[in-house]
Amino acid sequence: MNTSASVFGNVHLGYIVIETDRFADWRRFGTDAIGMHHDALSRDLMRFRLDETECRFLLRRGPAEDVVTTGWHIDDHASFEQIEARIRVHGVPVVEGTAEEAQLRGVERLLRFPGPKGITQEIYTTPVTSSAPLQMLASGFVTGDSGMGHVALTSTKPAQIRGYFNTVFDARLTDYIDETISGVKLKIRFLRVNERHHSIAVAATRGLPLDPIRTRVQHLNIQAATLDDVAQSYQRVHELGFNMALSVGQHTNDKELSYYAQTPSGFEWEVGWNPIVIDESTWEPSTMQGISIWGHLPVGQTITDKLAQFRDGARSLARPENTVPALSGAGIPDD
């Protein structure tokens, strides 16, 4: 097996597994606010759909209040086996998911292996589609060749996380953003595995080994089909009493227009529209100043919220961050 041939372009973010005890709040948030399709499986399991794929978000009952797994759709068996071989050759354990686990995720078969920040990574080749019509408030969401959105993390070891996703998926650096928030300087790295501007974003505090976020992920992103979908879901989030993290704005790098709501589990949920699609023949990484062209202003944030965030950051000093060293190596130095 040639493990060096690139799998870039054959990898797509396919599903997310969230562990929560707040099922009633999540159902209202997902269906009534964001506008997704909901399927109740049992008292302890439910799913959200965005398209014909049977599962995009699997919620299972548990105490984490966090994302616990990301699932990656691999286009073909050759790329799937190549990724598996890469992980095994580095001595990292690979476990085949059970038939029940595959069924819950709406896939025919999956492999599981450790990922950065304790987020399990899973890969699969064949998603199961549903013939049941979508019942959702949104007109639709953009998935397809770009995958279903992106995951954003905060990290004290961003080079190692970039190294991990380069080793496993041949992720490419799209660009950087330098941002200062409340006097804290951040550097954000944006990584792509296909034509989507980024499927993974990694934010790090510059000069301080602090992670100010309690949860494993800082936010999840899904892409709405229309600008009206963004505006209407923004209004529903407000009307239903869910917390808004950032108001509507437009990003400097991918040009996506979006807002950020706070989920019942505490991490943020970005609903965006119309990000740019990368042209591999012309794209060159660059560094931009500031995350937004306009908007994305904090909503309802108090000094108490800020103090809590700094407390979380201080706690992170005593909490070692696992980047799966066998797959991240020494990391990739910044360009």
Rank of each mutant, 00 (worst) to 15 (best):
T3S: 08
N10H: 14
V11I: 09
H12W: 08
L13N: 07
G14T: 06
G14P: 05
I16N: 00
I18P: 00
T20D: 03
T20N: 00
A24R: 07
W26H: 04
M36C: 08
H38I: 11
D39R: 15
L41C: 11
D44K: 15
R47W: 01
F48L: 15
F48R: 07
D51Y: 07
T53G: 09
R56I: 07
R60Y: 08
G62A: 02
G62Q: 00
P63I: 14
A64E: 11
T69E: 13
T69Q: 09
G71W: 06
H73S: 01
I74T: 03
S79A: 15
F80G: 06
E81Y: 10
E81T: 13
E81P: 03
E81V: 03
R86W: 10
V92E: 04
P93I: 14
V94R: 01
G97F: 06
A99V: 15
A102W: 11
V107R: 03
R109E: 11
G115K: 10
K117N: 11
I119R: 04
Q121D: 01
I123W: 06
V128L: 04
S130A: 13
L134E: 08
Q135L: 08
Q135N: 12
L137F: 12
L137D: 08
G144F: 09
G149F: 15
H150D: 04
V151F: 01
L153I: 10
S155N: 06
A159T: 14
Q160H: 15
I161K: 00
Y164N: 02
N166G: 04
T167Y: 08
D170I: 02
A171Y: 07
D175Q: 08
Y176H: 13
V184A: 13
R189I: 15
R192E: 04
V193Q: 09
N194Y: 10
N194T: 02
H197F: 14
H197I: 09
H198D: 02
H198V: 09
I200Y: 10
I200C: 02
A203E: 11
A203K: 00
P209S: 08
D211K: 09
P212Y: 15
T215I: 08
R216V: 08
H219R: 01
N221F: 06
T226N: 00
D229G: 04
A231I: 12
Q232H: 13
S233C: 01
V237P: 04
L240V: 05
F242V: 10
N243W: 10
N243D: 14
A245C: 12
A245S: 11
S247T: 14
H251C: 07
H251V: 15
T252V: 06
T252G: 00
N253W: 06
D254P: 05
L257K: 10
Y260L: 04
Y260Q: 03
Q262I: 15
P264K: 01
F267Y: 14
F267H: 12
E270T: 05
V271G: 00
P275C: 05
D279A: 03
W283V: 12
M288Y: 15
Q289C: 03
I291M: 06
G295A: 03
H296A: 03
V299C: 02
G300N: 05
G300P: 04
T302R: 02
T304S: 12
K306M: 13
L307Q: 08
R311E: 12
R311T: 11
G313F: 13
R319L: 15
E321S: 07
L327Q: 03
G329N: 02
